[in-house]
Nucleic acid binder design. Structure first.
Length: 596
RNA sequence: GGGGGCGUGGUGAAGUCUGGAGUUCACGCCGGCCUGUCAAGCCGGAGGUCGCGGGUUCAAAUCCCGUCGCUCCCGCCA
């Protein structure tokens, strides 16, 4: 690569470079001025190396030599040498060598810093985002961007190797009010009209299948105008791909290839294939969630049979009304009475009416406030159902099924989820239902309405229990992405819309262009989208995806660095044919009066 | 839309419960000394609207009300 201002990367120098003359350019990560000799830890994109500036070598004027400060941008020409005596620093990759400066020039001084650029120092995230360009100088952040770049490159390698064509789809598209809120962009050429930013390239990639592309992929930027979380941003990146004449197995196999390659590239670990698979039903029954963390056991046990004829009124009542009794063996928690009561109130916070705890004793009995209401046989069966050994804590919830699974699934995570990220548990969740009921009791698509059912006739007869050809990829309890075999038959698509309560006119108005396209020899096709931010964050062992996004938004959608989002001139709005509503302007005025 | 946590010199924290002089610690910054350090060391110094507004009180970083910002979570995210 052409590089006229420097000959080497600071972090690349090794003992084998000793004796050579180098020119480095980078930043002052640390300065240690001994009055005579000055040590400078010099950092560039490749890492850090120690530079020795000795006044006897006259590498610079006395003013420059004493004047350099943290984060000054400097250039040094000098000789690489092995560090004398026992001065090697085993904690640095470049610690065997140092650069003896013969010439040092200050390329660009730096203001005093708003915070120290040091991986060992915690700084409030808002401050980091305000000065993100400084935050990104930290080696840990550089490392995150590197991991991200590497992940994307490996994804491209796998896709290109498999004959996929990278095709870009538009980001100014029609709004389809379904699913997440759309990010809207007003149109100047058609005042009062709006584009939406894509929540995913879904329909465009299906169009590409109809176009005969057969194998498409894209590193796609997607937008969802919903509230943020540690694993959700307004805009995010996905590896989106789709294949014609493809089924579920083709997609899952490709996903394994991608996951294996990315994990190898970032973590240096070889994953075992095939990945475990759970049906959606199994995942819900055993883990209380559709994205189980299977790095630990603590599976949910169904206790309905144990309490089939119980005299314990609370459980009997729940069972009589169609509910269920289930529990988890949380292992040797060693909690006091008040600690256990704390777990109980946590369960109530999560929506349970109550929680029964039991502790297995040395003699095999179960200690619990409700033990006196249970028969010998019930207690024995319970211990067996949980495989309880002395010291184990059993947590039992009785309620309607959804509540029980919700509460136990969450408690399971809170009691058992491992802290670290050393272990990586990928799995596929398959056989999702086609529909779920919303709060009004209407059917809504669990995945999206273009997902193919396994059996069309069964779907018509009993939509509530219909299985779809949809699947998710899960890593350590996080949903990395989802995909499905799509509907390629317009008649099936019409039936799905019908069950969803979307009238022909509605479907035609919103998706007519797409339904029309389906009528021109659409190949069977299937695909997937992997959330790149989440994948890289988990592989890097990070708690939130902002760490792997160079310029993320805060939870309220702001960028503290650039000040977005911001108000715009009335003149701009007028051109667009839109106006800010009076009540919003009133809020602005009130805030200004407050001196905000 | 709702719940929890946080906001104190440039940075991070303690102080807040139980009101009593802007008090403390570490880092950074500025100056001095110092030629082998590597989170250099020693000496000295500067630096504050305790997020903001209101209230209670003789007295508020501390108690009360409101508000803003950041964050975690629920809702939401087909």
């Amino acid at each position: 690569m052409a590089e006229t201002m420097k000959t080497h990367g600071a972090g690349t120098l090794r003992a084998t470079d000793a004796g050579g003359e180098v020119t480095l350019a980078g930043w002052v990560a640390k300065r240690r001025d001994h009055g005579g000799v000055v040590f400078v830890d010099m950092r560039d994109a490749t890492g850090i190396v120690q530079v020795v500036l000795n006044p006897e070598d006259a590498p610079a004027s006395e003013a420059d030599l004493r004047g350099i400060r943290s984060e000054y941008c400097i250039r040094v020409t000098g000789t690489v040498r092995l560090r004398p005596g026992d001065m090697a620093n085993p904690d640095m990759p470049t610690g065997d060598v140092e650069v003896v400066g013969q010439a040092m020039e200050i390329l660009s001084p730096s203001n005093p810093l708003p915070f120290q650029i040091d991986d060992r120092i915690d700084v409030e995230e808002a401050k980091r985002l305000q000065y993100r360009y400084l935050d990104l100088r930290r080696p840990a952040m550089t490392e995150n961007l590197l991991a991200r770049s590497r992940a994307i490159r490996v994804m491209r390698d796998v896709m290109e190797g498999a004959g996929f064509l990278e095709v870009e789809t538009p980001t100014l598209i029609a709004s389809t009010p379904e699913g997440a809120r759309d990010m809207l962009v007003p149109s100047r050429l058609r005042p009062g009209n709006f584009y939406a930013l894509p929540q995913s390239p879904q329909l465009f990639k299906q169009l590409l299948m109809i176009s005969g592309i057969e194998r498409y992929y894209q590193i796609a930027r997607c937008y969802r105008d919903e509230d943020m979380r540690s694993d959700r941003q307004l805009e995010f990146a996905q590896l989106d791909f789709e294949g014609s004449f493809w089924g579920q197995e083709d997609v899952l196999e490709t996903l394994e290839e991608i996951s294996v390659a990315v994990t190898k590239a970032i973590r240096g670990v070889d994953l075992e294939r095939p990945f475990p698979r759970l049906t959606w039903h199994e995942a819900m029954e055993r883990y209380g969630t559709d994205k189980p963390d299977i790095r630990f056991g603590m599976e949910i046990a169904n206790l309905d049979a144990v309490f089939g004829e119980t005299g314990f009124k609370a459980f009997a009542g729940v069972l009589a009304s169609g509910g269920t009794v289930r529990g988890i063996n949380a292992g040797p928690l060693g909690l006091s009475r008040s600690g256990l009561d704390g777990v109980s109130s946590r369960a109530q916070e999560l929506g349970a009416k109550g929680l029964v705890w039991m502790v297995a004793e040395e003699d095999g009995s179960l200690r619990s406030p409700v033990a006196k209401f249970l028969s010998e046989a019930e207690l024995a069966d319970l211990g067996a159902a949980f495989g309880a050994v002395a010291g184990d804590t059993l947590l039992i919830v009785a309620d309607e099924k959804k509540t029980v699974l919700d509460v136990l699934g969450q408690l399971r995570l809170e009691m058992g989820q491992p802290e670290g990220h050393d272990e990586l548990a990928y799995l596929f969740v398959v056989d999702f239902p086609v529909f779920e009921r919303n709060e009004d009791g209407d059917f809504v698509a669990l995945h999206h309405p273009f997902t193919s059912p396994v059996d069309v006739r069964k779907m018509r007869e009993d939509p509530g229990h219909a299985i779809s050809k949809a699947y998710d990829l899960v890593l350590n309890g996080s949903e990395l992405g989802s995909g499905s075999v799509r509907i390629h038959d317009p008649a099936v698509q019409a039936q799905v819309f019908e069950i969803l309560g979307i009238s022909d006119e509605d479907a035609d108005r919103r998706f007519g262009w797409f339904l029309e396209a389906l009528r021109y020899g659409t190949p069977p096709h299937a695909g997937f989208a992997i959330g790149i931010d989440r994948l890289v964050a988990i592989l890097q062992g990070l708690p939130n995806i902002r760490e792997v996004i160079p310029f993320p938004k805060t939870q309220t959608g702001a960028d503290p660095l650039t000040g977005s989002p911001s108000r715009v001139d009335d003149a701009q709005l007028r051109e667009l044919g839109v106006d800010v509503r009076p009540e919003v302007k009133a809020e602005w005025a009130a805030a200004e009066a407050e001196g905000d």
